[in-house]
């Protein structure tokens, strides 16, 4: 396998990582901690939104993020013929 091919694969992987880690940071540290007071002025049923993100929403997003990453990477592996 030539190194150009590997480099391109790694670069795409890093791009996915950056985007997903950014979302990870925003839903937990952003919505759940730093901007919790601002979001708490918005309501979703019986929940204040900031509180909901801190105790529920962030966890749901975490689960989704991992499964999105699994899908993206499986596709990427196939594209670069690095799957098994």
């Amino acid at each position: 396998m030539d190194s150009q091919h590997r480099k391109k694969y790694w670069k795409e992987n890093l791009k996915y990582l950056t985007i997903l880690i950014f979302i990870w940071f925003v839903v937990s540290y952003g919505f759940g901690i730093l901007f919790v007071d601002e979001l708490n002025t918005i309501r979703m049923g019986g929940f204040k939104l900031g509180f909901w993100f801190a105790q529920q929403g962030s966890i749901y997003v975490f689960v989704i993020l991992i499964f999105v990453y699994v899908r993206l990477m499986n596709k990427l592996d196939k594209k670069y013929k690095l799957d098994e």
Binding site: I21, I33, V36, F51, A54, Q55, I59, F62, L65, Y69
Partner: peptide, 24 residues
């Protein structure tokens, strides 16, 4: 109350790091 969120986010968010940065 809200302070307990540190455990909820802290003990689940680490798995995102594991899946993306370490485990594979």
């Amino acid at each position: 109350g809200y302070d307990g969120s540190v455990y909820l986010m802290g003990w689940t968010g680490g798995y995102v790091l594991l899946a993306l940065l370490l485990a594979p």
